[in-house]
Design a protein around this nucleic acid. Structure first.
Length: 489
RNA sequence: GCCUGAGUAGCUCAGUGGCAGAGCACUCGUUUCAUAAGCGAGAGUGCGUGAGUUCAAUCCUCACCUCAGGCACCA
């Protein structure tokens, strides 16, 4: 049995989740469910990143404690699990003790590559942030406060990234660390070739306002959030704790280890994270699945434009599987995509209501009306079996391109509708002929449901429940429409 | 500014050195097993711009334009 570790990015809890967050979780969920259906043993992880300084700032703005803010927003992110039917095996918050312990252990494991260095930069007291010259206004002022930033010098810990450049490059080149999509691979190879520099992995506790994880042995410094955040993937598995069996099983083994992340943070996952792991003498992830971003009506989602789409209200209005379907089918798995209600409803009506839902309904209705629907023994003909096998093959080979895989499944739906039209089974009186046609249709529906189960788990279950099959014997019963049509006036 | 990728029907995209494709949307026809769903037909003439290579370019080369991404401490 293959072991598979799949993670989502851990979200930054200074606000509520939007549909872009939902996209990534759903994609990762599909991959996790897919591997389970293939018989693999899966550990699927998600979580929240709670140690960022930004949380401290957001809490101050909101006039509540950082802890309160983080707790409130964690709840909102965690709620996606139920709303979107996500099958996480574990959910880690970086403020949990197990994470603190593990992150500090990881730091210690990297200690030979960590050194202190003075760092100076332009610091805006108002923002409590360092700015680069380019980020300032033309007059060299803070863009937020229009004040002149101070030149601040701080001693921080740095990590010897340079030491691992070659090894990382080789891992990427050889696909030992596979970057999906391939197009990003070259981007990072050229990034490495342009020369890496050591990076800063701590900030002063004062600047962090006491929020975050202490640097082991130096409480005047906090671990930089990225070093801390990346560690979640292994601290959740018990790294650094007394009970490391999951860590051994799913990380330090030949297990597939895949991180699903947004394209904007790919660098941290293909360069910094591997370097940290190499330094600590640990295994590297095997694949980075770097998805694109969502726009709404062609525009970037932003609070000021007011076009942020809330996944919860979408689910409430259209249902979990409809939301999952739209995001998985309309948005290229590895590219950017656009959300509009118009597109959503179009997809819903044409693919789900008129396509899948209608095919299911008409098939069961026909079988029911024919009177053949009891203890129906299904034996599909060769042509049908072959057709299904062809789709299944593509399904397995190209699964990662989730939107294309769905399109492939839909070809079976369309073919079935054509088949029904050609055969017109309701006009037949010959029972044998009818039986053959229904046999083929029920068989296709069952396979569609099985292939669909990672994508639309509830719908797949409903279809299988309706087909009511045991050992090739079906007792179908028609239920409520899977996806009632959306009527707009 | 530099690097990479992309620019094809209303929309989303596939594709090939030799008469330009699919799905959705649209129009017409048709059917009733079905969620006013299905099926068939049709219209759409479009390969970013300019030049070059070639018997022949949407596909190759060059330049340009537009867009997206990357160019280190941003979850």
């Amino acid at each position: 049995m293959k072991k598979v570790f799949i993670s989502t990015a851990i979200d930054y809890v200074n606000g509520a989740p939007h549909i872009g967050h939902a996209l990534e979780k759903i994609q990762a969920d599909v991959l996790a469910r897919y591997h389970r259906t293939m018989g693999d043993e899966v550990f699927f992880l998600s979580g929240t990143d709670e140690n960022s300084l930004k949380n401290v700032q957001s809490a101050e703005k909101a006039g509540i404690s950082t802890k309160e803010l983080v707790e409130e927003n964690f709840q909102k992110f965690y709620a996606m699990k139920k709303a979107l039917n996500l099958s996480f095996d574990d959910f880690i918050r970086t403020t949990e003790e197990r994470h603190f312990i593990g992150a500090q252990k990881l730091w210690q494991a990297c200690e030979k590559d960590i050194y202190k260095k003075k760092y100076s930069g332009l610091y805006c007291v108002g923002c409590e942030e360092f700015y680069k010259k380019e980020e300032l206004t033309e007059d060299g002022l803070c863009p937020e406060h229009q004040t002149k930033p101070e030149l601040v010098e701080e001693e921080n810990y740095f990590f010897k990234l340079t030491k691992y450049a070659e090894k990382i490059k080789k891992a990427i080149e050889s696909d030992e660390l596979k970057i999906i999509p391939e197009s990003r691979k070259n981007e990072f190879l050229s990034f490495i070739n342009s020369g890496l520099q050591d990076f800063c992995i701590s900030r002063s506790a004062e600047r962090a306002k006491g929020w975050g994880i202490d640097v082991p042995g130096d409480p005047s410094q906090k671990i930089w959030v990225w070093f801390d955040a990346l560690a979640n993937y292994i601290t959740a598995l018990g790294f650094g704790s007394k009970e490391e069996s999951k860590f051994q099983e799913f990380w330090q083994s030949e297990a597939t280890k895949l991180h699903a992340i947004g394209k904007g943070v790919t660098r941290f996952h293909v360069i910094y994270w591997p370097a940290m792991l190499l330094s600590a003498g640990l295994k590297l992830p095997t694949a980075i699945f770097s998805h694109g971003y969502l726009t709404v009506d062609g525009q970037k989602m932003s609070k000021s434009i007011g076009n942020v789409i809330d996944p919860f209200s979408l689910v409430e209005k259209y249902g979990t599987d409809a939301v999952r379907y739209f995001l998985l089918r309309e948005i290229p798995a590895l590219g950017d995509g656009d959300f509009t209600f118009e597109k959503f409803e179009k997809r819903y009506n044409s693919d789900l209501a008129s396509g899948l839902g209608n095919l299911f309904a008409r098939t069961l209705a026909m079988v029911e009306k024919s009177g053949l629907g009891q203890d129906f023994e299904v034996s599909p003909n060769e042509y049908t079996q072959k057709e299904v096998e062809t789709v299944k093959k593509d399904y397995r080979n190209n699964f990662i391109n989730l939107n294309e895989t769905l399109a492939e499944i839909w070809k079976l739906i369309s073919a079935s509708d054509k088949y029904i039209e050609e055969e017109k089974p309701w006009t037949l009186t010959n029972e044998k002929e009818q039986k053959e046609i229904f046999s083929n249709l029920l068989y296709v529906l069952k396979n569609i449901a099985e292939m669909l189960s990672p994508f639309l788990p509830e719908t797949a279950e409903k279809i299988l429940f309706g087909l009511n099959e045991k050992n090739g014997i079906y007792n179908p019963k028609k239920g409520e429409p899977l996806f009632p049509r959306i009527e707009n006036d």
